[in-house]
Design a protein around this nucleic acid. Structure first.
Lengths: 182, 182
DNA sequence: CCCAGATGAGACACTCATGTCTCATGCTGG
DNA sequence: CCAGCATGAGACATGAGTGTCTCATCTGGG
């Protein structure tokens, strides 16, 4: 059933987030099914990763919708976005490094759509005078991915408390380390 | 000779930075030697990665020395550090993700030394009133790694100009995106 | 010139993950 | 109750990467 498929996908995401080289057998065990059944759901490891990619893209776009990036101050929109995307951060971190492998091959167009919406957000903040203009929107987008991945790993390894995830990322991204104001 | 070994290590680093799953054969080709000779230098893939880790740690510590983290304003020290570490950023990015795999196994103590020096730098900035105190030094250290990796990949894929690497990272880390000050 | 050491090329066995298949079992809807 | 279907367990072949070995070749120093 479709519900099973989703469950398998979720547990695979959770496992691969922690151990990106996990075996099909390990993925199956983690989902509580046999390797044979896993293969009945996903033709192979490649298909599984593709499905995870689709899931990650879907969750990202859902978070982008939830965050209503076009409304209010851009800084607040970034905050809403990180908060909305937090549950998917682990999966994002996995896909982020996985994408480093897709050397030549074309990657899922979904990422391009997401990149476009993120760069649009940063550009909006720049045009409204809220964000500085000497950091390119492309770099800010990349940096956001990097901070999300770092945050997810830091939480996973216990270096940062899970409840501080959003705060740490948003504050660093928006305000930086330097203490000037107040 | 030792010089050859270093050359092999360098080209392996360059290759694995781009394609972290490269085979021993590809690594050998990239270094301009045969697989047999590669095996004469490094017992196996594991030994090669360990050697790369040692190289990365050595370059990191050299950069930390060069940057003189204890001198002057902490913000300036961060700037010097990122500038000094830039040539090794690609290797760092590779090792950063590679370390995600070292689940249980104890990792090289060198990283602990480096982490300690970095957290000490951030703590110094906080105690001098230069850095804000609501972001933990541990998180700032993690975030620095993440930004270095993101920066290295962004440059590798052409999304950011190589000459902007240091500026982008330092400015984002220290000042953040928000434009408050003149 | 000659020898020793290093190298490249290739063969070989081994391991491991993968993908496919079969068969027995268990559950469910008719 | 029974037929049908999904599942679990396991066997099996395959391919890729690895590690080891041998042998021919090349090169530099004595």
């Amino acid at each position: 059933m479709a519900l099973d498929r989703d469950h398998v996908l979720r547990s695979a995401a959770a496992l691969l987030t922690r151990k990106s080289t996990a075996t099909m057998d390990e993925v199956a065990r983690a989902a509580g099914i046999s390797r044979a059944t896993l293969h009945r759901h996903f033709a192979g490891r490649d298909a599984l990763v593709r499905a995870l990619e689709a899931l990650g893209i879907a969750e990202c776009e859902a978070a982008l919708d939830t965050a209503r990036l076009a409304e209010g101050p851009a800084g607040d929109a970034v905050h809403r976005l990180v908060r909305a995307i937090e549950p998917a951060a682990g999966l994002l971190a996995f896909l982020y490094t996985e994408n480093q492998l897709f050397e030549g091959e074309q990657q899922n167009e979904g990422w391009a759509r997401i990149d476009a919406r993120l760069t649009a957000l940063f550009r909006r903040g720049q045009e409204s005078g809220e964000f500085r203009i000497d950091l390119t929107p492309a770099w800010l987008t990349e940096a956001l991915y990097g901070l999300l991945a770092s945050g997810a790993w830091a939480v996973a390894e216990g270096r940062v408390a899970a409840k501080d995830f959003t705060y740490m990322i948003v504050e660093l991204l928006l305000g930086g380390v330097r203490r000037i104001r107040a």
